[in-house]
């Protein structure tokens, strides 16, 4: 049993912040790429506002491939890419690359599915009023799908908390690294328990805030 010294407390606090940092940045990055990708997937689909079977097929296949990679394999497989971008593959900043890359196809599908729920007639009404494709995306698709988009955002964030712990095992930093290095390798069970509890609290908080926002934006 370890003593809960100031140093350990400091490490736990640091680990929590690192996890929050990794998750936040990778959520943002995955939406920067995933949201447009999801929109393109939707509008190029059959019978949608900009049908383009080839593009739809191509992007759909890429997204499917991305999603079928187990995260732990992706983590290792893209190490060269991570090195290229960040210069190293160890540490929190380096973890952001696989976390984002892993989440982009996930986000794209979530976004596409959310927007697909909008009744076709609502989009047609906008077309009939003379709206351009861009106006339809920004003024119809995004706002109409907002409750569902927020729910997807929450799901993505929570999934990334889990993935970030996995990244931690291979030196990615954050609570995952703490749990692995102290809890597993040095048999400090209390450290394991503390990190797990912190992860649970984090996920609960995200879900609560998410549910609140979802309810607020839902006008249906």
């Amino acid at each position: 049993m370890s003593e809960w010294t100031g140093e350990l407390l400091h490490m736990v606090a640091q680990g929590t912040l690192e996890t929050i940092y990794m998750v936040t940045v990778s959520v943002v990055v995955s939406y920067i790429f995933g949201l447009p990708l999801g929109v393109i997937l939707l509008i190029t689909g059959e019978g949608q506002i900009k049908p383009n079977p080839r593009l739809y097929q191509l992007l759909g296949t890429l997204v499917n491939i991305g999603r079928s990679f187990p995260f732990i394999i992706l983590l290792i497989a893209i190490i060269p890419f991570t090195r290229l971008i960040v210069g190293t593959f160890i540490g929190t900043t380096a973890s952001i690359v696989p976390l984002s890359v892993g989440a982009i196809p996930f986000v794209a599908r979530l976004v596409e599915t959310s927007m697909r729920e909008i009744p076709r007639g609502v989009i047609e009404a906008a077309q009939a009023m003379g709206a351009s494709t861009w106006q339809i995306i920004t003024r119809v698709l995004v706002p109409e799908a907002m409750p569902s988009l927020v729910a997807g955002f929450v799901l993505t964030t929570i999934t990334l908390v889990g993935y970030s712990a996995m990244a931690g095992v291979v030196g990615g930093g954050g609570l995952g690294t703490l749990a692995y290095q102290y809890g597993f390798q040095r048999y400090q069970n209390d450290m394991m328990v503390v990190t797990v509890i912190l992860l649970i609290i984090l996920v609960q908080l995200i879900q609560m805030v998410g549910d609140y926002v979802t309810a607020r934006v839902n006008k249906r």
């Binding site: 009744p119 609502v122 077309q127 106006q135 119809v140």
Partner: peptide, 30 residues
């Protein structure tokens, strides 16, 4: 040309995320 042609539908097709005023404002904003 479509802005000169109004259309109404059996299923109304209103934007659920906008208020009544927001819906009526939509074609003007566009």
């Amino acid at each position: 040309a479509r802005r000169q042609i109004g259309m109404i539908f059996q299923q109304f097709n209103l934007l659920s995320s906008r208020t009544v005023a927001g819906n009526v404002a939509f074609p003007l904003e566009i």
